[in-house]
């Protein structure tokens, strides 16, 4: 596999992971976490673990993002700290 693609995805994984922790807007954090899950799914499929990538895409990037958005909608959108 091209190491450049690997490196770019790994960098984006770190950026989205830190970003989802630092962002004050919780809806933005939920979306960034979904992006993080999707990038992890790409990494799994690069490594050849297709079953894990499938699970990560459906659970991590799909349903858990919906759960986070629903929880933000029912609580508050901004963090206190």
């Amino acid at each position: 596999m091209f190491w450049q693609i690997d490196l770019a995805i790994l960098t984006l994984v770190v950026v989205t992971a830190v970003g989802s922790l630092m962002v004050k807007d919780l809806l933005g954090a939920a979306i960034l976490f979904g992006a993080y899950s999707f990038l992890m799914c790409l990494l799994w499929s690069i490594m050849g673990a297709v079953d894990v990538a499938f699970t990560e895409a459906s659970v991590g990037a799909g349903v858990s993002s919906v759960f986070f958005v629903a929880a933000v909608f029912r609580t508050s959108r901004r963090t206190k700290d």
Partner: peptide, 21 residues
């Protein structure tokens, strides 16, 4: 092929969630 009960179940659930949204 890749997949199984867990992934298929999540996608089935997601279709009903899509209806709710």
């Amino acid at each position: 092929s890749p997949g199984g009960g867990f992934q298929g179940g999540v996608i089935l659930g997601a279709s009903i969630i899509l209806l709710a949204i």
